[in-house]
Structure formats: C-alpha cells, structure tokens
Design a protein around this nucleic acid. Structure first.
Length: 879
RNA sequence: GGAUGUGUAGCUCAGCUGGUUAGAGCGUUCGCUUCACACGCGAGAGGCCGGGGGUUCGAGUCCCUCCACAUCCA
C-alpha cells in the first residue's frame, strides 16, 4: 500500500503560498480519495503484523469538546500517520460513547423531560422544548416513557456527534470515517450483551443481593470505580449507650442510624474497652440490646475509640457486618429516607412511638435533627455536637453522599474478591507496554486495591439492557435463581419490551409468567468492549467472528488519559481476559491533561476553557497540532497559544522555503548522483542523522523528540544552507555546481516534508502536491538509504559558524547583511579551517566576502572568530 | 497517610545509560526593506539546574533527606 515517491513533475507553485483554505482543500481531497481508508481485503489477505490497529477512545458526544480531545487525539494521529508511512495498514476507527448518565442529563435539560418507566410509549410524542428548556428542576420536567426518552437520547446524540466530527476532520485526524460505531447501536448492544451472556455462562458474571453504594438522587447503584471521596461537613455527636456498669459513650456523625445499630466495635488492643468486649449494652431511646465486639479496623484514635456499627453507615459497617456475622437492621431506603413503618426489631421498644411519629419517612438529614432532639430530651446526648470535616463517599457525578442499601445486582468478577484472579489481572498489566512506563503503577495500584467485584447493574434508561428475564412463580414472585437468557443470534434484546423465548408478551408480570431485568449495564461494561465492537468479534451474530477480528485483535494501541486507567483501561483488560485470555492491546499510550497558565486543570466550572473550534480557526490546524505534538505522553501540558504561533510560523516557513527551494529550475535524472559539492553532501549527511533520530523517536513513542530533531534541522536548512547555496543554485558557478545544489534542495525537501507530515499534515500535503502525484501521507517514511552517503556533517556546522561570525560583525556594526566585506581573516582550529575552505565560494557569496579572505589557525577547541574585518555598507538607494 | 510524577533562563520545555564553558523556542534588548518569507532576517543579554547531605577524579544527571506543586488512592 505504500508508494515510493513518484517521479518529480513540473512544479505548480502558487505565487504567494498561504495557509488559508488548506484545511478545506485537503480535507475534501482526503475524503474523496479515501486517503486514510483501511484496506480490508488487503488486511484479510495479509499478515497480522502488517496491520496497526487502534482502539480509538469513543468521545462522549453529549459532553463538551475541549482542548484535551485535541491534545490526545493529535498524539494518536501522529502515531497513526507514522505507522501508515511505515507501510502498515492502519485500522483507525471512530466510535461514539452515547451511553449513560451524561447523555441522560443532557437530554433532560435540553428537552425538559424525564424518563418514567411506568408510562406507556407515545408514538406521536413531541418534547416541550428543544434546547430552550428554562428550568432544570426535576419538578418542571415532563415525565415521558422509557422508549420516548431513549428516542430523544438517540436524536440528540446524533446531533452532538456532528460537532465532534467537524472538529476532528478539521484537525486532520486520519480516522477511517467509514469504520464507525456508536455504543448504543444494534451491533454494540448485541456485542455487549453477547459478552455479558458468555460471562454469565462461564460464571464470570453473577447476581447477588448485597449491600452496595446507592445514589439517592440518581436512584442507581454505583461501582467502586465511580466513587469519589470528598470532604463533607458533619458533626460528632457524643451519645450514651446503656451498659450494666453505666453509660458507654460513642461519637457518631450519623446519629439517625441508631435505630439500625447492631453492635459497638472497639479495637482488640484498646485497653479502655477490654472489660466491655463480650458484654452487651442497650441503645439509647430504643433500648435494643447490642453486643460489644472487637475488630482491628476500629480506629482507636478517632472519636471515642469505640464505634457504633449500623446497617449500614459506611463501608466499614459492611465489613464488620460480614466478618462478625451481625444481623441486618436496615432503615434507610433507596430514596434516602427512613422507612415509614416501624421496623420489627423496634416494635416492642420504648422508641416505637418515637420512630413512628418523628423518624419514619424522613430524609436522613431531617431524621438526624429529630433524633438529636430526642437524645437531648432523654439526656443521652453528652454536650453539644462538635462540627467536623469528614470524608464521605460520593458518586462522581452526584451531589449527596452515597447511602448503602441492600439490593439485588449483577456483578462481573474483576479480582476484587479472588486473590488468584487478582494476581492474573495484575500480570496482564505487565503484558501491556505503557507509554510512559510509570503509568503501569496506576494500573497495578488500582487492581491490587480492589475490594469487591465489579457491579454492572445500573438503574438507568439509556444504556444496554441486561439481557435477562426471570420466571415468576405462582405467587408472582421472580425466581432469580433461574434467569431466562436469550440466544446469541437474537441479540440485541430489550427485556423491558420483548418477551423471552417460550413466552408471549401477555405473560409479562403475570404469576407463572416472566419479568424482565429492569436494569441496564454500566456504561463501562459496554465501552470495555470497544476492541471487540470495532473489530467485529460478534460477527454477524452466528457465533463466528468477522474474519477481520483475527487481523486486528489484540489491538496495537489504546490511547487514553490517565484518569480513566482504573475504569476504561482496567475494565477492557478484564473483559478481554475473560473472553480471550489475552490482553486487549499491546500498547497503552497515556496522554496527560491540559492545564491553564495557573497550572490548574482546565474545566468548565473554573470558566477557563477555550473552544477548540475557535482555536483551530485562529491558528490553523497544523499550528494547533504542533502545540499538541510538543506535549509528551503522560505529561500534563500547559495551554500555550505561543506554542501554536510557533507552529504556525513553522508551517508558513515550510511553504515559503519550499517554494524558494523549488524555484531554481527543474531537476531530472538520478538526483543523488548529481550531488557533488562537499557542502551539499554535508547537509544530506546531517539529514541522514536527522532521519535516524526522527525514526527512533517515533519507534520509542516519542513523537516530540522526532519533531524537535526535524524542526531543528529545518531551521538550519533555511537559515544557513539555503542562504549559502542560493547564489550557486541560480547558476553563478556553472551548471554542474548549480545542479548539485538543486538536486540537494529537492532531496532534502522531499525527506523533510515526509518527516513533518505526521504533525503538519496540511502544509506538507500542499507542498508535496507541487511536485508529486499522490498524497505525502501515503508516501514511505524516509530512510537513510535514499540519501547519498559519504558527506561530512561537520562541514555544514563549520561553514555555518563562519557565516555567523560575519553576520555578527555586520550586526554589531549595525549595517545590513548586504554590506560587502572586502577583507577578513577567519580564525579557527586547523580542522575547522579545512572544512570552511571546502565551501569557501558559497561562504563568500552568502557573506558578501568580496575581496581578500585569509585563514589563521587558532587554538584547538576554540570557536570560529574573525579579525581585520572591513565592512562597506550598501549605499542607501536614492529615493 | 500511601503511590506516581514534577521542580533547569521572565514563560514553555530539552538535557538518553554521570564527562569539556548547561541548551532550544517564546518573550525581551539592539539592529537589518537581504531579489521565499516583516506571520520575515541577523545579533545580544538572561541560569548558586528547589534546599541540604553523600558516592565519584568528575553530579543538572546516581543515592539519602527535606521542601514545594500536581494527580490518583486511602
């Protein structure tokens, strides 16, 4: 698929080359000509090693576009372009992650609606607003059916995707737009459900009724990976429990949970409580007898050192409940309110009336107020509550602390409970090359710190339904132990809308009939399958993968940001391990974040975000890419307009210098054979080194190093080499000497354009088109072999230094560079002088050394200097 | 509290396995209509390489320690 550079043809060079319009011009050409199209047939016929496959991060289309996208997608695109030029078939799909809460929230706000599973579908439904909903309060939202809600999600995400596509195309990302998926389309849903069913069949997915974190606002279960610990204001309440030998004081931030207290726990080494352990005390107000127990995770130095264990105040309570086999006394419901009816264990207690009248049905917050009041009245509150900041668990998108409630949910084994699986998943991390390598410790730390399996049930609307039904017994109760599963060939299914195999729709909810699992899968449960979705693992649903799958999987590259190593990266590893026993990809390239000038993460709430569209329009795509490509993998980068301006100048310089280098006349025949001048041979020798460094940079996933090497060469090429040879190239010293310069200019330019092409796709394509048929992006990556051997790299440096001293003399004399130098003596070590002499004619032309030029040997190691230098300024032309 | 990373010129960053006088770009200062480019060209100034200790003939680079910042996890 890679072409060699075609024979040069007559140049068609614009009079005044410009960046304006290049993006539209080449964007159209690339799309029309399928420049970045993946050649499926060739890939099927070829070897796996000839393919470079990329597990492109599917952006959340309903999220906002930000410079972080530009940054990390540019990194990937540079690598993709390099690999393509190296002759690999680049599999570079684009996906859209339309699952989940961000989309639901955006749809709610945009249309002013809210999903309500109890409502019937309205085929002619029109939303009350379209992007102009005035209120974001839940009470003002119109309740609509699940299916209507999903339709609106579909409608809006398609719109949102257009904004991303437009920007991504403008930035020149060499994605194959014909290979695309949405995480909610039929294929993705079927793939996700198929993988889940296979997890179920192998016992890797299971249901469990267990205490879990619950967000009362969003009414959904939350996984460990979605947790966020935040400071939350609270107060310690010193409360007396009634022991046989007097009161036992505990300090709690959640006195409203006293009704659900099941034990007091102290540390086994805490001598203050040795005597109490094994005895029992009675709870205040409710007079329930609870044991005093010992457990090492009680914190001696916190509060009173003895803690109340409830059902459930926090994750430690769950640990105690499990390890000490404590009873379950749950009062907090999924709504975050205390249950209305008096719990059975309080029924005969003196506090039953208190519960019924002042606690039942209240939110945790108001129940706390009421209970503290009651404690005051009974004298069980010691002193006044003391304010404190404590860490509380939040859902990362939620605003209220999570409650812990017992629910039936699906889980996927991820090593959080089994040591062996944990060790094997840690080992999978060592099979992946992380770039940079230290990012692997983020992975390892996370996996080793897991304390539970992956909860994948979500009580949401817009997502992939859990493909499971449950039979109903004669009493209409679901039999969770015998779930009904669909055939793989029937996927995707929606258990809320379809009947399971062997049932009819009118048996839904009827005793002896069935009920569908009401939940959807965690969004990561689908996006953890992006390699399988994009690569065609499910195939046409017949059980056989698309034959392409074997040619792209395991993929070569997963690019992503470091904040989702614990979620997206890890989840993908888990799924690939369960399904294929392999890693999902062999390389993970981790991009950093974009920081504002104050070194803070740019975010909408701080008001410091800039819109990528405007930035690209202002500076050009090549310029913005240059900025992004200057940031190395794993390193946070500053948002730096200055760096974009540098990129823009480089792009313009490429246009102008190329035009100039091609302006001396055509070249024909074997160019390398025409390079005879020592200076010309020298510049190509330097370029050979640059090719080696630029290649080594990309091979080490260090495109920045590659860019820097090429860029440095290019400026020397423009400032020194071009200046030195232009007189000769015009023909001042005969045709052979001119031909050597012209051939060198052409050879160097062709190589430099290809070295810059991954970073500056537009300007390099433009210049390439002046002298070539076909795209520079389909040309071969330059090799040392295409440049003549035998030049001395030191020659260019020596002559450059000599030219610099002449320029310095002119600059210090404040005369123009055109000033003539009738006499001068160059002082330098003998070795350097020899090199300078070899290019004396070019030096004389560039420095206007018109008369006597002498050489004096200087000390070894000394720099080039000039003495006895006379200057004749150019007479100002008469006006 | 633990893990990881960062700390080099006013700013953004190079400096790989220790080796001459620490580099680049931007900015700044001083110049220059030089026939590709004034979105240009040339030249200059600017650094106790976060602090302290150690290893070494030699440390920006290796080790220890402290400080500051960032991210992730408790």
């Amino acid at each position: 698929m890679t072409e060699h550079p075609p024979a040069p043809r007559a140049a068609a060079i614009p009079e005044r080359p410009s960046l304006e319009g290049l993006e539209e011009k080449w964007g159209t050409v690339w799309a029309q000509q399928g420049t970045y199209a993946f050649d499926r047939e060739a890939a099927l016929a070829g070897e796996r090693a000839e393919v470079f496959s990329i597990d492109t991060p599917p952006p959340t289309a309903s999220g906002s576009l930000h410079m972080g996208h530009v940054f990390s997608y540019t990194h990937t695109d540079c690598m993709a372009r390099y690999k393509r030029m190296r002759g690999l078939r680049v599999f570079y799909p684009i996906g859209w992650d339309d699952n989940g809460l961000p989309t639901e929230k955006r749809v709610q706000n945009y249309y002013g609606v809210r999903g309500d599973a109890s409502l019937p579908y309205d085929p002619g439904f029109e939303p009350p607003f379209r992007g102009n909903a005035k209120s974001t309060k839940a009470a003002d939202e119109m309740p609509i059916s699940r299916q209507n809600f999903i339709e609106l999600c579909d409608e809006l995400t398609v719109e949102d995707e257009k904004a991303f596509e437009s920007l991504f195309r403008r930035l020149g990302f060499s994605l194959d737009w014909d290979i695309s998926y949405r995480t909610v389309d039929d294929h993705s849903r079927a793939t996700s459900q198929q993988a889940f069913l296979r997890n179920v069949a192998r016992g890797e997915a299971y249901q469990s009724e267990a205490p879990g974190l619950w967000d009362v606002t969003f009414q959904t279960a939350v996984a460990q990976a979605e947790l966020e610990a935040r400071d939350y204001p609270g107060a310690y309440h010193r409360v007396a429990f009634h022991g046989t030998d007097g009161p036992v004081y505990i300090e709690t931030t959640r006195p409203e949970l006293i009704p659900s207290c099941v034990a007091l726990i102290a540390h086994p080494d805490d001598e203050r409580y040795h005597a109490l352990i094994g005895s029992s005390v009675r709870t205040p107000l409710f007079d329930v007898e609870v044991p005093v127990l010992a457990h090492p995770s009680a914190e001696m130095d916190k509060g009173a050192g003895i803690a109340m264990c409830c059902t459930f105040g926090d994750l430690t309570d769950v640990l105690w409940w499990r390890e000490l086999r404590l009873p379950t006394r749950s009062v907090v419901t999924r709504t975050g309110r205390l249950q209305s009816e008096v719990p059975p264990w309080l029924a005969s207690s003196p506090g039953a009336a208190l519960y019924a009248e002042r606690l039942g049905g209240k939110t945790a917050f108001s129940a706390r107020t009421a209970l503290v009041e009651a404690l005051r009245e009974s004298g069980d509150l010691d002193g006044e509550p003391t304010p404190t900041q404590r860490k509380a668990n939040f859902y990362e998108r939620g605003e209220k602390p999570l409650e812990i409630v017992t629910t039936r949910q699906w889980y996927i084994r991820n090593g959080g409970r089994e040591r062996e699986l944990n060790a094997r998943l840690v080992a999978q991390g060592r099979e992946i090359e992380f770039h940079p390598a230290f990012m692997r410790s983020r992975y390892t730390n996370w996996v080793e710190g897991l304390n539970g399996d992956w909860l994948v049930s979500r009580q949401r609307f817009f997502g992939v339904p859990i493909p499971v039904w449950y039979p109903l017994d004669a009493d209409g109760e679901p039999d969770h132990d015998h779930p009904i599963l669909p055939a793989e060939s029937d996927l995707p299914v929606d258990p809320a809308a379809q009947a399971p195999p062997g049932y009819t729709d009118d048996q839904r909810g009827v005793p002896g009939g069935f009920v569908g699992d009401p939940d959807v899968l965690d969004t990561w449960a689908t996006s953890s399958l992006t390699p399988q979705i994009a690569g065609g693992w499910r195939g046409a649903g017949s059980g056989e993968p698309d034959p392409l799958f074997a040619k792209v999987f395991p993929m070569d590259l997963r690019p992503q940001a470091h904040d989702i190593i614990r979620t997206w990266l890890f989840a993908t590893v888990v799924r690939a391990f369960h399904e294929h026993g392999t890693v999902p990809w062999t390389n993970a390239a981790i991009s950093g974040w974009i920081l504002d000038p104050d070194r803070k993460k740019m975010s909408k709430s701080k008001g410091n975000v800039v819109t990528p569209e405007d930035v690209v329009r202002e500076h050009s795509a090549d310029a913005v890419r240059y900025w992004a490509a200057s940031g190395r993998l794993g390193t946070d980068a500053a948002y730096d307009v200055g760096q974009m301006k540098v990129g823009r100048r480089l792009a313009i310089k490429v246009l102008n210098a190329s035009k100039f280098a091609l302006s001396f006349g055509d070249v024909e025949g074997d160019l390398a054979a025409q390079v005879t001048d020592p200076l010309d041979r020298s510049v190509l020798a330097v370029l050979r080194e640059v090719v080696e460094r630029a290649t080594a940079g990309f091979e080490a996933w260090d495109y920045t190093r590659s860019l820097e090497a090429t860029e440095t060469f290019f400026w020397t090429f423009c400032d020194d080499y071009l200046e030195l040879v232009k007189d000769r190239a015009y023909g001042s010293r005969g045709e052979a000497a001119a031909a050597s310069a012209r051939a060198t200019l052409r050879l160097a330019l062709d190589v430099v354009l290809r070295l810059l092409a991954p970073v500056l796709p537009y300007v390099t394509e433009e210049v390439w088109s002046w002298t070539h048929e076909g795209s520079v992006h389909r040309a071969s990556w330059p090799s040392v072999q295409e440049l003549p051997d035998g030049g001395d790299p030191a020659l260019l440096e020596a002559v450059g230094a000599a030219l610099a001293v002449v320029r310095k003399a002119k600059s210090e004399a404040k005369v123009g560079m055109r000033a003539e130098v009738p006499t001068a003596t160059l002082v330098a070590p003998a070795r350097v002088l020899d090199l300078v002499r070899a290019a004396e004619a070019d030096l004389r032309a560039a420095g206007r050394l018109t008369g006597r030029l002498e050489y004096a040997e200087g000390a070894d190691g000394a720099e080039v200097a000039a003495r006895d230098l006379e200057l004749v300024p150019v007479a100002k032309p008469a006006r």
